[in-house]
Amino acid sequence: MASETLARDVAGSGARAAARSNQSAGSTARSLTFRIWRGDAAAGHFEDYHTQVSDGMVVLDAVHQIQSESANDLAVRWNCKAGKCGSCSAEINGMPRLMCMTRLNQLDHEKPITVEPMRAFPLMRDLVTDVSSNFRQKKNIRPFTPRPPDAPDGTWRMAQTDVDRVQEFRKCIECFLCQDVCHVLRDHHLHDEFVGPRLLVHAAQLEMHPLDVIDRTGDLKDKHNIGYCNITKCCTKVCPENITITDNAIIPLKERVADKHYDPLHMLLKLFHHKDPGSAES
């Protein structure tokens, strides 16, 4: 019974798969124009490249093809080509995306497809930007610090339901597309003052980690300037991992900061005890 159903499923799937390849075979000899940013920090311009494409190709394939055919020195970062490492971030037709996960058939072929570097970061060359501020800023967020182990063998107990929300944040592949669209960074260039959505997600996974004992709300308020975020949710929209950055990470962090540092009762207590609840660490 089960195997009969399966045989039918497989036959159907085979037919669909064959149809897909016929479709692509029918359209293999297409040439597309890619308008790619070339240049360095000093100067740059868009340059048009024509290359043959077939269905199923992603933007990164086309960029690689151009690189091997006509622009050997075209600078581009990439690694896994499967949406897991977050290296090939760029702006495609003006939208921040991973080049490896952007299928050509999702794009308008009537006009040249523009590929340019992330604009919120200093340009190194062509499609490669200097994202080192993200790595520097991470060091300013106090690291994971667990409570003492729960069991004599040095291990902890955590329920799956309690780690679900942290696991959402830990899906982050550090592509920095959220940083790219954050207006505080992109338009106001406050990379040294404001950590940006990626690192707020990082702070959220630490703050909400069931084992972590450090309170980072004071740092979030004063050092990382979480207040600069006015929840326009652009970061959430571009996240290739579909992390609900604003609603699940940033807003709850803002609420914690407000609870700890702007709650009138807290402020009153602080006045009497001369003690900053934000610095209480166990």
């Binding site: 897909r20 692509s24 080509k81």
Partner: peptide, 26 residues
């Protein structure tokens, strides 16, 4: 398939979770 993704890994975890391998005759 498609040609441009040929080689990208499909985790053994699929089979660990009960995934099965079948040929074109099912």
């Amino acid at each position: 398939w498609p040609p441009s993704v040929r080689g990208i890994l499909v985790t053994e975890g699929v089979r660990g979770e009960g995934g099965i391998l079948v040929n074109n005759q099912g």
